[in-house]
Structure formats: C-alpha cells, structure tokens
Write a protein that binds this DNA or RNA. Structure first.
Length: 495
RNA sequence: GGUCGCGUGGCCGAGUGGCUAGGCAGAGGUCUGCAAAACCUCUUACGGUGGUUCGAAUCCACUCGCGACCUCCA
C-alpha cells in the first residue's frame, strides 16, 4: 500500500512515478466515442482501463476530476470527402436527423458503460456544446502564427510548428518520415502541406452540421474539440490524458501541437494508451467491419460468439490482461473468464458468511498469516506497477483459495489471527468490488425467495426424499441457480 | 517503403538475468444418496539459430513468423 504508483507514460516511453501537478487534485481526460455507431469492445477497453485509473486514484484519496467527452460533431469521413461527415452519413442511412443519430448512440454508449459498472465521469462534455471554446483556441493558434486560412477553412501549419517544437514527439516520428509516408493518393486539398491538419473546415451547402465562425459557416476539425474541452475543464496543463493506441497518431499528436500553439503546454503530463482488442489476431476496426458491439456480446447475437457474455464477464476478461497488451478475444477466453469471475464472486459471498466467531479467539503460528499478508501486499504492488490488474487477479485467486479452504474445512480457523483475517477480508473486498469494480450480474431481489426454496430443500434432504430434492435442483438449474450440499450446510450459487 | 511492437505450456494470459504468476481446459484423488462446488496432486512452457554470463524465457546479434501506426477508428 505504501509503495508509490508508477504509470507508463507514452510521452517518455517509460514508467514514471505518478506526481500530480496540484495535489490532492488530479485531472484525467479520456477521449470518448464519436457517436455515429454502437459502442464496441474497443470502447469498452479504453473505458475500463480509465475506470480502474479513476477508481484507484480516488482510493488513494486524490480528488479526481475525470472528464470523458462525447464527440457528436461528425467530422469528415476522409480528408478529401468534401461535405460528408460520419454522423451525417449515418443519419442518411437511418433516415433521421444527425442530432438524433448522435443522441441515439450517446444513449447506447452510456447504457453499455453503466452495464460494465463504470463509474460515471465527473464531466461528460459534448463537442457540439463547445464550439465557441474551439473557435477561441483556433483564433489563438492563428494569432501565434501557426495556422493559416484558406477559403473559409483553417489549417495547422505543421512545418512551421516543427521549427519550434517536435511534431511527432508522442508517436516517435519525424515530420519528414510522416510526410514521405503520406501516400500520393492523398488528393490535393487546399492544404499547403499534406502533413497539415484541419482546425476548421468550411461547410459545403450540403453539410448539415454547421456553425458560424469568423471564417464563415463550417465545423471544427477532428482534433480541436479534445484540446479545447480538456483545457476548459482541467486547466491548460493537467495530469493524465489518454485513449486507445490508435489515437496516439495523429489525434493526440495534434492535440499536443494545438495545446503548444495556443496554451504553451503539452496539455497533459502523463499520456496513457491502452492497446487494442483483436479478433482472430486482427484488430477490430471501423473500416474492417469486424468489430463486435457490446450489445452483440451481451446478447450473444454476433456470429463470432457462441452465447451471451455478461458485462462483468467482459470486465474480467479484459482485466486479466494488462492494458498495454493486445487482447485477443476468443470464445474459450470468454468462457474461462466466466468461470473465473463466478469463482471470485462466490468467494466474496463466502467471505461475508464465514464464521467470524471462530476467528475471534485464536492463536496462530503465523505461517498462514504471513502468506495472507504477502498476497495482500502483492495486490497493492501489482496495481501500483502501472495498473497490473492481471497480477491483482492472480493474487485474489490466491486469497480465494484460503477462503474456500476455511469454508470446506481443509483450513482451520485456528491457523489464522484475527488481524490477518481482517486484512484478507478488507483487501479482497476492496480490490474485487471497489477497485476492479466487479458486481453481481444478477438481480438480487430473488435472493430471499431462494432462501425459502433452500429451506424446502433442506427439509426434503433430512427426510431423504431424493426425488424431491433432485426436482428442486434441476428446476433451479434451469434458471441458472445451483444448489451445493456442503459438509457444513447447504448453499446456492449462480452458475 | 518509413516507424514501432509482439511471439510464453491444450487455450487465455502475467513475468523480464537465478527463487520458474494466475485463470480456463484435461487427468487422478478426498468429500457426496447421486451430483456440483471446494480442496490436494499431476501435465512444467517461453518461435529458431548463435553469442554474452557461473547462470537467460528474460541481455545481444541474426533469422523466421505475426501485428500495429503512417488514412476514419478505442
């Protein structure tokens, strides 16, 4: 618990001690979704990664402001597609207005995030609600001579910027390489240089999402909304900014450039990027059309999935991998996650039911105590080591073995001290429920009813009415409840 | 083509110079009316070749394979 938190910083490419700029306050910004489609596994991974961050920093008693935006301004399908933005395209397909599309998918995203038991962000700003802030930032960049206006559009002058700052410091590239890497298929837009990017785009007559600006009617470029909104709510320089790996370039690179050009800061001290989810070894991507939406996963309606998997199973599945590793999603992996999740949760129930009285008056030789303290400490060192949730889970399973041991009598209560027992209880609950954010998937309102069924079962058992108890067991099995006859009592569990 | 990353047991996945996580699946055992769960035991891996070292999955070189970014994406 006492060792310091280390975070891998994409900007410096190394693990660094976490030092907030203005303790006890911590500011976090996560690039949220562009809402023109349903939330998918990739959104979940980024959000879960940052949820752990948010939860743990709060656990460390920081006062955290967590901002996660909604990008509801369409932006362009491609740089060269004049007048077609992603949301407008989708609106056309669905025959509704663009704002309806944005609202629909915003609702869907929020619903999915809630299902995943993510803590809601402190502020969830929409890009469309912050057009003035974006315009102000663009004006500042123009004043500083790092942007130019052509025919109602504004572009960031990357080459000029690069004379003073390193454009590419986040993604580790040089401007020359970037330029040469730009394929010649990029049709000449009115940009002076292919590496330049749009801060503001003039709207064609067809373009629906449009706003008035000093340069005429148009809409903001893709990168400016995050710079503007993060600076507005977290200050010109704040602690943590992140998102998926794929945002590192160009999105976050551009954000840094915009911030330097207008605010004279790198925007954030720590840049955090979670790795991507792959399916059959290939990353999921919008353009590849191979992504699995969260609704599809939760209902089992995707062809790559054999059955529904609950939000908590997905959460477990994702936390079993380190956030900076690619994560390959497979049916076997999800099934393994399902089993593991159930075991950990059942352990948590047991913990609340174990006979604490027995622990009260005991003396021990300390050996088991030591093992428990070691596992508890290991949970903290794992999460402090760049949020190694996989290792945290491994340690929770070690603790689980002890819990199960007492439960079925292979471990004696006499072997543990009360202090160690309390440490185990506290650590297990804190990590499983508070920090990793697991909860019971099922509706707990049936629990009292189950207790009644259990009493009937127990009666039948005492009377050795095996037909009767087999009937109860198979019937409950059908609704996903298993009855287990333990040596010291009968319990039910979700299966 | 440029830049970067990865290859761990049947599967998933930590680790990153010696003490060789964890989960799932499989086998055997204990328990049980039968089960299930749980517990115990077992299967002992690091793409290939060479090198550094007392010692390498971990460092270096080469090599093979895979992937990401450079274009919308979490």
């Amino acid at each position: 618990m006492q060792q310091p938190l280390c975070i891998y910083n994409s900007l410096t490419r190394q693990k660094e001690l976490f030092k907030p700029l203005r303790p006890p306050f911590v500011g976090i910004y996560l690039c949220g979704p562009t809402v023109y489609g349903k939330a998918h596994l990739g959104h979940a991974r980024a959000a879960i990664t940052f949820d752990i961050l948010f939860r743990y920093l709060q656990h460390l008693d920081y006062k955290v402001r967590y901002v996660r935006n909604i990008t509801d301004v369409g932006h362009l399908e491609r740089d060269l597609d004049e007048g077609k933005d992603k949301i407008a395209q989708q609106a056309k397909l669905e025959e509704v207005s663009p704002m309806e599309v944005a609202q629909r998918y915003t609702n869907n995203y929020r619903k999915n995030m809630e299902q995943l038991n993510l803590l809601p962000p402190s502020i969830e700003p929409c890009a469309s609600g912050h057009i003035p802030e974006q315009i102000t930032m663009i004006e500042k960049i123009i004043q500083n001579g790092l942007a130019y206006i052509i025919d109602g559009s504004v572009y960031f002058d990357v080459a000029k910027y690069n004379q003073m700052h390193h454009y590419g410091k986040l993604s580790g590239r040089m401007i020359e390489a970037t330029r040469s890497g730009m394929r010649s298929l990029v049709k000449q837009t009115d940009k002076r240089d292919p590496v330049d990017f749009a801060l503001w785009k003039k709207a064609t007559p067809m373009h629906i999402m449009r706003w008035a600006s000093p340069w005429g009617e148009g809409f903001p470029g893709w990168h400016i909304e995050c710079s503007a909104m993060s600076a507005k709510y977290l200050g010109n320089q704040f602690d943590i900014h992140g998102g998926g790996m794929d945002l590192r370039f160009p999105h976050h690179e551009c954000e840094i450039a915009q911030a330097q050009a207008s605010l004279n800061t790198d925007l954030a001290t720590y840049w955090i990027h979670n790795n991507l989810v792959t399916i059959n070894g290939v990353k999921m991507g919008k353009s590849l059309g191979n992504f699995i939406t969260l609704d599809e996963l939760f209902t089992g309606s995707h062809s790559a999935i054999d059955q529904p998997y609950s939000p908590m199973v997905l959460r477990f599945f994702m936390l079993q991998a380190h956030y900076r590793s690619t994560l390959s999603i497979t049916v076997e992996g999800l099934q393994a996650a399902y089993q593991g999740y159930r075991r950990l949760m059942n352990g948590w129930y047991l913990l609340t039911q174990l006979d604490q009285e027995a622990v009260e008056n005991t003396h021990t030789n300390g050996r088991l105590d030591e093992a428990i303290y070691a596992d508890c400490a290991a949970c903290y060192s794992a999460i402090n080591d760049d949020f190694n949730t996989a290792k945290v889970l491994a340690n929770l399973f070690n603790l689980l073995k002890k819990i199960n041991g007492w439960h079925n009598g292979t471990l004696s209560y006499a072997a543990i001290s009360k202090a160690a027992w309390n440490a185990l209880r506290k650590t297990y609950t804190t990590f499983l429920i508070d920090l990793l954010g697991f909860k019971e998937d099922h509706n707990s309102s049936i629990h009292p009813m189950l207790e009644i069924v259990l009493m009937t079962y127990q009666k039948a058992k005492s009377a050795k009415q095996y037909n009767q108890i087999d009937f109860i067991r198979t019937t409950l099995h059908k609704i996903g409840i298993a009855i287990k006859d333990h040596p010291n009592g009968i319990r039910w569990e979700y299966q």
